[in-house]
Design a protein around this nucleic acid. Structure first.
Lengths: 342, 342
DNA sequence: AACGTTTTCTTAACCGGTAAAGTCCCTATC
DNA sequence: GATAGGGACTTTACCGGTTAAGAAAACGTT
């Protein structure tokens, strides 16, 4: 009930030493006899004391909290397996360093800049992981202006001089299109993610480029908000074209939209992969739960989070800016892709 | 680049006043002329200063961070729409109070007790939201021992004397079973969540009770780990019984498993809802993306998070322990439930 | 003009730690 | 036996705020 805040002073008194000695003991610094050290830990244990991180932070040492602000409508976040998996990867590294994650959902990049700045100014965080980069993202300048240690999750062309962790979306898109073309598809469509995001633009450009190179006349692209509903709408729009124009293969920017697409195809009486092939992205467990199972560009999202966190610790320990690519998503063919029917 | 930490002292100097005056101004406390107040804000703005939350916390005011530790294997978290939606609800309230969320994924309740304790001891958080209660949960005693303000998300019978926010799972399960029975189903099965969780036990008991009351001889239940794979396995096991014993309706404890079940039925050549009806739980967007769409016990998870956070702020402002039920999940029939075929 | 009130601001003591500098004592060295 | 060098602690000065108590100036009163 009472709790009566136990402080370092109480521990010092109980162990019969000074505050300084307790501090020394708890930071495993030299200058104390084994006996005293033991006595101090004993006292701390008895009183149930742990050093206040707040005070410790204020006293000038580092902050062991990492920030992460995510800017997506709440409705979508719930559904996207991506972030939770990413976070779990980040967490697994933070835990090793007994660090915590400060999370915030924001509505705009501008708001995020504000949050990050106040976190940093208020000494709430030691550094941050920035995600969902846009072209000319204001966070690049903000991070540099503040001198705040960050790792930017995004392609180096988007993240300015910041240390970045990224996947090669362009190559993955190209591989996806090549694969579908190799199966014999000519009318390939892509249902992309949010148009404002930098990596969507990169995928769009790569898709165009691949379509041109492979001389796919019927290539088409749409952008969405990543939601299943938008994916369904986009698919419906693509598949309702006259049979001669209708795409025979569709690539999606996440797996929720691919699942939605699968259901639209069924609803329209089209068989997958007979009438249309579908290819998902990110490849969560979901892709193996549908019927037919979804072929996907598969991706170790957890590992992506791990790498981001590791890199942030690198930055925190003084490493200069760098570019850290993580493995390119690999094609994982399952039941939803096949050669087009004649 | 340099940032040269701006502190309250710098602001005071620039405004030509003392530290104390700046503090007064920024906390909107009386005792300053309008002119000085203005001058101070002006100076702060020019220097880009914001008070350090760390220092502020240390100086004795409250902590504006709320803790949340989640104990589920990372692999599952990614997929479960529940938590992200819940978090987004929590966040929306925290934001109003300019509070942040400290998130941690843990592997066991014991680990969580440790984390919560060190957060609290270290003055990292002002209070916490506890989720996923088990019978005799050690967190109840821990929270009371520490005198830590918390809100427990779980049924009052599980959360001891802690302030709780909960949904009436028992009633919802009963309603689900009644509905299926009303459609004419006699062999109803349930694919439950993690056996160790308190609310799973409550649902299991309620299901048994409802089956007895309605005299459903063929009622069966299984528990899983909430993953789609486990849901698929469970469904496969249930549906591979001889036709005369095979359940004609299955209730799932989340929607991922229901999706998995749907695909298993398809794989086994059974039609939904013709041969077997499926009923999902939680009702994320996913339930509307399958074919047929999934009937579900629908639930405002975002609102659940909102209520949890609101209640925590109540506790923080001194409200005594209380019990806050949120609306019971309501049955939302869609395409996956129908009377059994003869 | 003398005196009590307010208003407005300053001082100084914390909050709970860290870290550099200082003190004391014990031992090795010449 | 004087001195230097460590080891084991203690002192003390911060970190960047808050806040109670104190002081100076402005104001109203009789």
């Amino acid at each position: 009930m009472t709790t009566s805040r136990v402080t370092i002073k109480d521990v010092a008194a109980r162990a019969g030493v000074s505050k300084g000695a307790v501090s020394l003991a708890f930071n495993h610094k030299p200058g104390l006899s084994e006996a005293t050290r033991e006595r101090i830990f004993q006292a701390a244990q008895e009183l149930g004391w742990a050093p206040s991180l707040t005070a410790r932070t204020l006293a000038g040492s580092r902050v062991d909290v990492v920030g992460l602000a995510i800017c997506r409508p709440a409705r979508l976040l719930g559904l996207e397996p991506f972030y939770m998996e990413f976070i779990s990867g980040v967490e697994s590294v933070l835990t090793e360093h007994s660090c915590s994650l400060l999370l915030r959902l924001v509505r705009s990049v501008e708001e995020e800049v504000g949050i990050q700045e106040s976190w940093w100014r208020g000494r709430q965080i030691g550094g941050s992981i920035l995600v969902d980069f846009r072209p000319d993202d204001p966070r690049v300048a903000a991070a540099e202006r503040l001198g705040m240690p960050v790792v930017a999750v995004g392609h180096p062309t988007l993240t300015g001089g910041l240390t970045s962790v990224w996947t090669d979306d362009a190559t993955a898109v190209t591989e996806a299109v090549r694969y579908l073309a190799a199966l014999g598809h000519r009318r390939v469509a892509r249902v992309g993610g949010a148009a404002a995001l930098g990596h969507t633009a990169m995928r769009t450009a790569a898709f165009d480029e691949a379509a041109r190179t492979l001389e796919l006349a019927g290539a088409r692209q749409l952008t969405t908000d990543y939601s299943g509903e938008a994916g369904a709408r986009a698919t419906r729009s693509l598949l309702s074209a006259a049979a001669a124009d209708r795409p025979t293969a569709i690539v999606y920017d996440n797996d929720i939209m691919a699942v939605a697409g699968l259901s639209v195809a069924a609803e329209m009486g089209l068989s997958v992969p007979g009438d249309v092939s579908l290819l998902a992205w990110d490849d969560s467990q979901l892709c193996r739960l549908t019927h037919p199972t979804l072929s996907a560009m598969s991706h170790d999202v957890h590992g992506f989070g791990v790498e981001a966190a590791r890199t942030l610790f690198g930055v925190l320990s003084g490493e200069g800016p760098g570019s850290h690519p993580v493995p390119t998503p690999v094609l994982t063919p399952r039941g939803s892709t096949a050669p087009p029917s004649r």
